[in-house]
Structure formats: structure tokens, C-alpha cells
Design a protein around this nucleic acid. Sequence first.
DNA 1: GTCTATAATACGATAGAC
DNA 2: GTCTATCGTATTATAGAC
Lengths: 198, 198
Amino acid sequence: MANDTKERLIRAGEALFRSQGYSGTGLKQLADDARAPWSSMYHFFPDGKEQMAAEILDYAAAYYARMLARGFEARPDPLDAIDAIFTGEVEILKRSGYRDGCPIASVTLDTASTVEPLRKRCGEAFASWIRTIAEGIGRSGVDEEAATELATFVLSRASKNATPLLRTGRIVHQAIEAALSNTKKTRPPHKRTRAARR
Amino acid sequence: MANDTKERLIRAGEALFRSQGYSGTGLKQLADDARAPWSSMYHFFPDGKEQMAAEILDYAAAYYARMLARGFEARPDPLDAIDAIFTGEVEILKRSGYRDGCPIASVTLDTASTVEPLRKRCGEAFASWIRTIAEGIGRSGVDEEAATELATFVLSRASKNATPLLRTGRIVHQAIEAALSNTKKTRPPHKRTRAARR
DNA sequence: GTCTATAATACGATAGAC
DNA sequence: GTCTATCGTATTATAGAC
């Protein structure tokens, strides 16, 4: 590679996707932000915006997957890892003035219904993160299914699958139940039938 | 009111925001979907797209708040209400072919960084839902703070506040902890070996 | 409140020279 | 790989008649 123009484009794109999503981001603004010439756009991404977005998503997916894996490797206790990962993300969000969220989430929400190839890639990104998190949690002795269930619970519409939402509902349910039995001992705990179905 | 053109516009806008977000939705497509004449656009929303979006967000916020409140009113047990609300949303998502998500979330993710008035409205919408949910949970005896904490945990970047993310982290932590102690008590760990994992 | 017409701009995408 | 220039279209937004 003679220079790093393509990488600058992808990096700038990831940043813009974080704060503006896919349809909110113009290619001209992107090239500007990357300090890349406009002509490089279609030189590196001859198939246009969609191809460029696909490569940005792949880049972001791999980047975060590595970050997650490292988080779990660095700490023997997965609970510590989860804490560190969350507070780390909070730090990033704060430092950006609450601008930089999750690039996959933004793109999912404004393209899942309209641009099928991108929706698919978003779904794959989330799936890979779930596998990484499930593996990390799995080390602590939670069985595989429960670990995946926990890891899935933030997953969005990108997967074209209702289980993420259902699992979120179950976890909310359990959290409430836990808070109930913690703070109000006078109340008889709920029947196991509802909470135990997982 | 002679006719209901404005309401049709707002309803169509809410639907489009669900599936395409703010920047992904064109005003002409919106007017078309609403079967409203193009001229009505700037007749009812003289300040343009931003004003229209603001009114759509207010409409959606009120609509969902009512839905939540009714959900809690209809069922004495807030746990039942949570279950019903989640499975209801899953039903909607499924029926739309996984197209229709949360209109506030979509708009938040692609405008929170760029259109301050809309970001503010999104934040207010989430805040009102949190109050409604906290009230619903509160009836079961959970104290106010715990109820608010639980209700907040899905909140996004719209609030320009890190507590939602931090609270999510805490709840994930607790969920894992709970799963851990459940596993150890109720079943032998690792029925399937890690090598057998797909 | 609705009509037709259009301005002004941004967008994604191409062309051809170097 | 980069340059300049532009095409066609879609966008948001206005103007003025009825």
C-alpha cells in the first residue's frame, strides 16, 4: 500500500456512522473528514456507498470484537470484565460529548428495513459480539445456553429475530423480581413458574 | 377541523421514522404515504422538516406512554404487565416483518449529535416513559429509586447522561451473578463440554 | 387547504485527463 | 491514485394562483 487513504476513509466513516447513521452521512462530508480526495471514494469503493458502508461495518465489528475479547482476557473474573467494558464505553461516550454511540446500532436502525445487505452485516456483527461475550461469561461456569441468553439481551432488530427482545423482557422481569425480593421481604416471592421458564 | 390531513401526516411520519429514521425519510415520500398533497406539508409545518419531526416525536411519545400506562393499569401485578408489554412489542415487530422498531430510538441515533432540538425531545420522551414505568413498578412495593433505576436501564444517548449506560452495566452484572448462583445450585456446571460448542 | 411550478441545494455517481 | 468537472436525481423549501 502506497498510502493509507482507504483506511482513513473507513475510520472517518465509522466515526460518522456513530453520530449520524448511514443515511445521515454524505460521502462528500466523509471524504472531507478523512482528508481524502473525492476521487478516492469511487477508486476504493467502485460499487459506491453501499460497498463502503459494508466495509466500515466489517471494520467496526472486528474492532469491537477484539475489544471485548481483550476485556475478558485481561480479567479472570468475567464480572470484572463486564464492569470494565461498560465503564470504558461510558468513558468514550462522555468524552465525545455524548455524540459517539454504537456504529452498528445507528446503521441498523436506519437501514434494516431498506438495505438488506447492510442489515445482514449488522446482524452478523452483533452475532459475533454475542459469541465473544458468551465465551467470556462461559469461563465463569455459567452453562453455554445461559451465557448466550445473557449476551443476547441487548441485541436489536438487525437479527430479524424476536428472541433478543424476548430475552430482554425476561431479564427485565428477573431484575424486577430480584429488586422486589431484596427490598420488600414482606411480599411473598413470585411463583417460580413464571421466572423459571427460560 | 375540516379534515384530518395533519394527523395522517403525523401518523405516516411515525411509521417512516420507525423504519428509516429521520434523515432516511424524505418529506415527499411522507406526504405520499399519508395520501396528503405536497402543499399540506408546509401549510401545517411552516418551519419545515424539523418542526414536523418534533410533532411526530411528541405524538409517538404520548402514544407509547399511554400504552405503557394502560399496560400497568390492566394488570395488578407489574411483572405480568412487563411480560405483556414485551410480548406485545414482539408481536408488532414480527407482524411488520421486523421493520417497525422504536421511532424515538431511530431518530435519536441519527440526530442526537446533529439536531439539538430533536435530541432534546427524544430525551424527554424516554424520560416520560421511565416515569410511567417507574410508577407502574412502584405499585408492587419496590421503592422509588430502585424502580427508577430499573426503568432507566434501556435509556439511550438521548438523555446526554451516562447513568442509563451505567445502570445497564449494573443490571447485566446482577443478571450474570444471578445466573451464576442459579447454575451452581440447581444444575451441575457444563453439562456439555466446551469442545462440543458449535 | 390545496393547486402547480420551481428555486436552491445536496446527494450519489461518472467521465476523462494526468 | 488523484485531479477537475459534471450529470442526473432527490432533497428541502418557496412562490403565487385558486
